[in-house]
Design a protein around this nucleic acid. Structure first.
Length: 264
DNA sequence: ATGACTGGAGTTTCCAGA
């Protein structure tokens, strides 16, 4: 298998960001790119454009403003979308699992949940517990090589936000959200970035469009690549690819990249 | 520079995003 580059990127509309995605695929040629917030209906997904760049694609979209996708140069097949067996149209646009020969990838877009304390906030918290149950039913964290990638809309630790005192209790940095995220990890997932950069502050993946936030690096680490043991063992490098955030008309998120050295 | 968000829906303004 050799070296595999796995990327997750919330593009904030694939329609608005298609040129950026094309540029990214040409420049970086990752083996797998997980996208969130495609904001596209199934029939509007630009499959041919991506194919012309050598990428197969799987997309879970709909009429909503969500939408997740997996693009890959590798052969694969869809395992499931949403929470299997549950009637939840929103989740069906937020979870997509694709199985490749050497590993399985899930692209996930966790609900924002604002405002704090609302029904939507509770739905967000439940989303994490339901994700854990889904993993429990389908995977073994010690044996199955799985990467759960996406926009979790949670900064896990104080070092993951630019001002923890200011942001404490606000959306994406509320203790209940962080606790729900930990419950998910406790099933048996490793936060890839923290495996390689433990304790390092200022590594953000999202910056507000307003207030010159990116320039001042006032951001949050909301996008994560979570790995079961077999993939954690094969991990060689993890970084936030800040360059696309500096392009003209960018997404407000930057890609997160994990590099693996997989046995042949 | 006496200021400064974006995309989508649907219509010229509002909502959600985080």
């Amino acid at each position: 298998m050799g070296i595999v580059h796995l990327v997750t990127w919330n593009v904030n509309s694939l329609n608005a960001r298609l040129e950026h995605v094309q540029r990214y695929l040409k420049q970086r040629s990752p083996e797998v790119l997980c996208l969130q917030e495609t904001k596209l209906r199934t029939e509007a997904f630009p499959q041919e454009v991506l194919e012309s760049l050598g990428y197969r694609s799987w997309h879970a979209g709909g009429p909503g403003r969500n939408g997740v996708a997996v693009l890959s140069r590798l052969e694969g097949q869809e395992l499931f979308r949403g929470f299997p067996g549950e009637e939840d149209p929103q989740a069906a646009e937020r979870i997509l699992a694709v199985k490749f020969r050497a590993f399985t990838v899930i692209s996930v877009y966790v609900p924002n949940g604002s405002p704090v304390g609302s029904d939507y906030f509770l739905y967000k918290l439940e989303f994490f517990y339901r994700l854990r149950e889904l993993l429990e039913r389908h995977f073994d964290p010690q044996r199955d090589p799985l990467a759960l990638c996406g926009d979790f809309n949670v900064a896990p630790e104080p070092i993951d936000v630019y001002d923890p005192e200011l942001l404490e209790g606000q959306i994406c940095f509320h203790e209940r959200e962080r606790a729900a995220f930990r419950v998910l990890l406790e099933w048996g997932l490793h936060d890839a970035l923290r495996l390689k950069h433990p304790g390092r502050a200022g590594l953000f993946t999202w910056w507000d469009y307003q207030f010159g936030a990116f320039k001042a690096n006032r951001g949050m680490r909301l996008d994560h690549i979570l790995l079961t043991n077999p993939l954690a063992q094969a991990l060689s490098e993890v970084f936030v690819d800040r360059e696309p955030r500096s392009w003209k008309k960018p997404s407000d998120h930057a890609p997160v990249v994990a590099v693996f050295q997989l046995p042949d």
